[in-house]
């Protein structure tokens, strides 16, 4: 039996979680205030993922940059590939919240979408 201490990042409460594992299988999660914490812990010890937020350049908008995010979370190990892929992109204004900035970013199957109107 093996235990791991984690901090849930599901919301700013940041509950302290203890995951108990046996033969690489999660047997229990404690310390979570809500079910999201349980789900986070199970994922974090097997396949950790993150939402990535960044910016890309825009031509002709009210600002030179527009903020964006991965629509869903992507594998943690791909974070840098995602930000790297966004560096080469320049959009033309107007850009609206929800517009796809880059589809299937870094082969994750996840789209990057704009989070601001510029």
């Amino acid at each position: 039996m093996e235990t791991k201490d984690l901090t849930c990042i599901g919301c700013p409460l940041g509950c302290s979680l203890v995951v108990t594992m046996e033969n690489n299988e999660v047997t229990s999660v404690t310390g979570n205030t809500c079910p999201r914490g349980d789900a986070y812990a199970r994922k974090e010890v097997t396949n950790p993922t993150r939402i990535v937020t960044s910016t890309v350049r825009v031509n002709g908008g009210s600002l030179p940059m527009v903020s964006c995010k991965t629509k869903e979370d992507i594998p943690k190990g791909k974070i840098f590939e995602v930000t790297e892929a966004l560096k080469s992109i320049t959009l033309e204004a107007p850009v609206h919240i929800g517009d796809v900035v880059l589809s299937n970013v870094a082969g994750t199957g996840v789209d990057v979408i704009a989070t601001k109107n510029v």
Partner: peptide, 25 residues
Amino acid sequence: LNQCIHNGFGLHTFKEELTGPEYAS
């Protein structure tokens, strides 16, 4: 919020994790 482009806003209000600009909008 316009400069807080990271996510984590509005979980209590909208039950979604929004970025700062999305929450503001």
